[in-house]
């Protein structure tokens, strides 16, 4: 019984039910017993997870195991989905994001925890305005030109677009659009950047550029990245969380966290059999 963490009774339990790692450093985000429902459908169950500051954490796992769902809890983007409900607590720098008092400060939460999506979503504005938009709505008082340039440089896009800042953001290529979205997220000076499969629509070269970029961004930001690409997870991340999905009695499918550890442990000597199978590609 002890070897199968999922079947352990959870009531009153504080220790993470997944095997392996417990955080030593200061965690910027702490998920405690987080379950997410869509209506009455339980999509993710009882996740305990500490995201460490200035590290890259990768979420891996088969389709439908709730990686995106959990990611959207960190900036409360699930609030936008009708019927979505989050149980448990997610602490951001020690304060529970799902506290009542954050209901009115949700914009501030989302500024500090940015997000980049699977599909690039540039606004139909100029490249310049795409970046400036977030800064403006968050009341940025400084020099806008400087902010735009710095964000684009950080996103390794400046050299490609510096002569056409007035052009529409939609005129860029897919890879450039994604870097524009990263620049846009950086421009509002977040602490954390959540990325949901940011490279899945990109060619290998653009993907490598973004991976390089992640390494640089790590100095300043905490990054959580969902990916289906095992090489990517092992190349870029410091920590890896493996999620799996299992059928429930009611015929649904429920995701849960199987194992969370330093990336080399997950890829070289995972404690769980299912993790080993998944990372070696012998899964399902």
């Amino acid at each position: 019984m002890k070897q199968d963490p999922i079947n352990q009774p959870l009531s009153g339990q504080i220790k993470p039910p997944y095997s392996g790692y417990t955080s030593s450093k200061e965690a910027i985000l702490q998920a405690e017993k987080v379950s997410v429902f869509y209506g009455s459908y339980l999509a993710v169950r009882d996740v305990f997870l500490d995201i460490e500051t200035n590290k890259i954490t990768a979420f891996i796992g088969p389709s439908g195991c709730g990686k995106s769902t959990l990611l959207r809890c960190f900036n409360r983007l699930n609030d936008l989905i009708l019927g979505a409900r989050v149980e448990g607590s997610i602490k951001f720098q020690g304060e529970n994001l799902y506290d009542k008092k954050f209901d009115r400060k949700i914009e501030e939460v989302r500024r500090r925890i940015g997000m980049v999506f699977q599909k690039p979503t540039p606004f139909s504005k100029s490249i310049y305005e795409n970046i400036a938009f977030g800064a403006k709505i968050n009341g940025y008082q400084g020099d806008m030109d400087e902010l735009v340039e710095r964000s684009l440089r950080q996103a390794a896009l400046w050299d490609e677009v510096k002569d056409k800042l007035k052009q529409s953001g939609l005129s860029l290529s897919g890879g450039q659009q994604q870097r524009l979205c990263i620049a846009r997220a950086i421009a509002v000076q977040p602490d954390v950047i959540l990325m949901d499969e940011p490279c899945s629509a990109l060619d290998p070269i653009s993907t490598l550029r973004i991976e390089d970029l992640l390494h640089e961004l790590k100095e300043q930001y905490t990054i959580v990245i969902v990916t289906h690409n095992m090489q990517q997870a092992s190349r870029v991340s410091d920590m890896t969380a493996f999620f799996n999905v299992e059928p429930t009695d009611k015929g649904g499918r429920m995701g849960y966290l199987v194992e969370y550890d330093r990336t080399e442990v997950i890829f070289q000597s995972p404690k769980e059999e299912s993790t080993r199978e998944y990372v070696s590609g012998r899964f399902g």
């Binding site: 900036n75 983007l77 914009e107 989302r110 500024r111 999506f117 979503t121 968050n138 846009r184």
Partner: peptide, 15 residues
Amino acid sequence: IPGSLRQGAYALGAT
């Protein structure tokens, strides 16, 4: 207008 665009704006902290 696709929902992804709206989400992009919300994710930046827009009301």
